[in-house]
Design a protein around this nucleic acid. Sequence first.
DNA 1: TCTAAGTCTATAATTATTCTAATATGAATA
DNA 2: TATTCATATTAGAATAATTATAGACTTAGA
Lengths: 155, 155
Amino acid sequence: MRKLGLVPTIQRLVVLEFLENNHTHPTAEEVYQGVRNQFPSLAKATVYNVLDALKKAGGIQELTIAREAARYDYNPDPHPHFLCRICGNLYDVDLPCSIRPGDKIGGHLVEVAQVYLYGICAQCQKQSSLDKNESKTGPGRSSASTKRRNDAGAP
Amino acid sequence: MRKLGLVPTIQRLVVLEFLENNHTHPTAEEVYQGVRNQFPSLAKATVYNVLDALKKAGGIQELTIAREAARYDYNPDPHPHFLCRICGNLYDVDLPCSIRPGDKIGGHLVEVAQVYLYGICAQCQKQSSLDKNESKTGPGRSSASTKRRNDAGAP
DNA sequence: TCTAAGTCTATAATTATTCTAATATGAATA
DNA sequence: TATTCATATTAGAATAATTATAGACTTAGA
C-alpha cells in the first residue's frame, strides 16, 4: 500500500484484499456488499473513494466494458477482457496486444489501451446446446444465470 | 432504414441524419440537443429508443469508452477509438484489428470487439507545449477546452 | 378507410456515481 | 505524550444517465 503512495488505512486494506480474493471483476456495489460482512461500518462513498484512489495509484484497473457500472480488476496490467452477454460474467483473456502505453497513433499519445470483447462465454455456449437437446424430451429451463442482469449489453 | 428492418419514422430518420452529419461521436444528450432545433417535439426518451433500435439493427454502434455516458458512432463497423483526457474529444483510429467477430478465444465466442485508447490527442499535445512557452513570457491560459468535462477518465 | 401492431411523448422511477459537511484518523512535531 | 494539520471516512443528499410506464399517435397492410 505504501508502495502505491497511499496512506494504508484499514478501509483501503479491506477493499484491496477483497479484490485480491475475488477475481470476478466486481462492481463498486459488489465490493461494497462483499466487504460489509467483515466491515459493516464501511460507507459506500468510501468504496468509491478507495477504488478511485487505488486506480489512480496504479494498484488496480477500472474497466468500462459495460455501460451500467464500472468494474474493477485486481490486476493493474492491461489485458483484454471478455463479457458474456448471457450470464454477464467477465473473463480475463490472454492475447498479445500490439499497442503499448507511450505509442503514438495518428499523432495521439496513448497512455492506456483497453480491449473489450463481447459475446457468449464457453460455459453458456455449452449450456445453450444442452438446453436444445433437453427441449426435445422435456420442458426446458432458461440457461441464463441471473447473477447479473441478463442482457449485459455489447455496445 | 428499411434495410435495417426498422419502420422508417421521421424521428428515426432525423436522428440517423444527425449522426451522419456529426462524426464527433455524440452522446444521447448531445444528439437530443442537436436535433431539437429542427425537431422541437422530439422527446429525449425517443432519442434513447431510436439509438437503441439503430444499434440493435446494426445501423450504428454504441461506444462505452467513457463511464459517464454512451457515445454513438454512425459507422457500425468496428474500429479503434481514442479518447483525449484533456479535451474529451473522441477520435476514430485506423489500426488493423487481429480479432474478428466469430473468432473463439479461450472457448469464448466473440461477437463484438472494441479497442479503446486513452491519452492526449495530437492537438492537446501541441497546445500544451505552446502553453509552456507562453508561460515564460506572459500569463498563461488553460489549454483545456471545456467542450466536455475536463477529466475524461481513462479507466 | 379501418385496424392491429408498433412508435412516440411526457413524466416518473431507477441506479451509478459524486458532492457536502461534519467527524475521525494518521503522520509529523513539539 | 499532547498538539496540530492534512487527509480519510461517514451518512445522506444531490446529480445525471438511463429505463419504465401509460396513454396518444402513426404506420403498414387488409
